[in-house]
């Protein structure tokens, strides 16, 4: 005789603990991060984000492979492997593509499908909702801004081509983390601000790419024909990477002082954040 039986638990009241706003922010951030990566969704939803992440790691794997296979003298002699700051030059297209995907994916569907109304009927407020979204996007973007140079550092270290000594290792590590977070923060703000302006993901993604590319092309062209170099501070597609060069102690590609680069990065990040917050505070949810 089988022991199997159907147990109808029915609906039960709940008098356990409730995790409040913090729990709500944590849950929304996690849910949004998974969504941005296409996880628990269809194959096609995963394809582009995971491909972008994969592409960002390919150069690191190649360089670690080169370091492991080539003779030490050749690797140590320099010129074969790029510096950590230069690594971004190999993956900037993947970063731009990923940034253009993540922000819109995290914000637009909630408005398009009116999930925002359900979220604001929970302990979340407009501000804590946006905090959750930022907390989702920054670490997801760090997968391409922080992860690949970290892999390079660890791989080169194991291959015997890493920093000399533990102190130098920590210095490089700190530069990688700071640089990765600078790029993540700036691009999180820009991609979320662009996504706050439309309900359509594709339009927002196109907008992000347009902002990053147009600012690069336009400012570079104007400087090339004799405009003030400081015009490059408007180039949000490049100034985070320029600041990363300075974080690694390198001269960078422009003569703009580092302090001005820091201010420009902060201005872009805070300005885009202000656009985002302003848009959400003006949204009408219900009458």
């Amino acid at each position: 005789m089988s022991d199997a039986r159907i147990v109808d638990r029915g609906y039960r009241r709940y008098d356990g603990p409730r995790l409040g706003v913090r729990g709500a922010v944590r849950s929304l951030a996690w849910h949004s991060a998974l969504r941005a990566l296409g996880l628990r969704r269809t194959f096609w939803a995963k394809l582009l984000p995971l491909a972008s992440v994969g592409i960002a790691y390919v150069p690191a794997l190649v360089f670690v492979g080169i370091a492991a296979l080539l003779p030490d003298q050749l690797v140590q002699g320099g010129g074969v492997l790029p510096g950590y700051a230069d690594y971004y030059g190999f993956i900037s297209a993947a970063i731009v593509l990923f940034v253009a995907l993540v922000g819109p994916e995290v914000l637009c569907p909630d408005r398009r499908h009116r999930m925002l109304g359900l979220y604001l009927a929970s302990p979340l407020t407009r501000d804590s909702y946006l905090v959750a979204k930022v907390l989702a996007v920054v670490p997801v973007l760090a997968l391409v801004t922080l992860g690949p140079p970290l892999l390079l550092l660890v791989g080169l270290t194991f291959a015997g081509a890493g920093p000399e000594g533990f102190g130098e290792f920590l210095t490089v590590l700190a530069r990688i983390v700071t640089g990765g977070l600078v790029i993540s923060a700036a691009y999180t703000a820009v991609s979320l601000a662009a996504a706050s302006l439309t309900e359509r993901r594709a339009v927002a993604s196109a907008g992000v790419i347009l902002v990053l590319l147009v600012s690069t092309v336009a400012t570079s062209a104007l400087v090339a024909v004799g405009a003030d170099e400081r015009l490059l501070l408007l180039n949000v597609g490049a100034i985070p990477f320029e600041l990363v060069q300075r974080i690694y102690g390198q001269a960078g590609r422009t003569p703009i002082p580092t302090a001005e680069l820091v201010v420009a990065n902060l201005a872009w990040t805070v300005g885009a954040g202000a656009v985002l917050r302003s848009r959400y505070h003006r949204l009408r949810i219900t009458r």
Binding site: G20, S27, Y119, L124
Partner: peptide, 20 residues
């Protein structure tokens, strides 16, 4: 959201309302 499974959605909204 149309591309989310019903159970995932209900669970997520319960968490947002504070349930472990």
């Amino acid at each position: 959201a149309p591309d989310v499974r019903a159970h995932d959605l209900v669970r997520h909204l319960s968490e947002v309302h504070g349930l472990p």
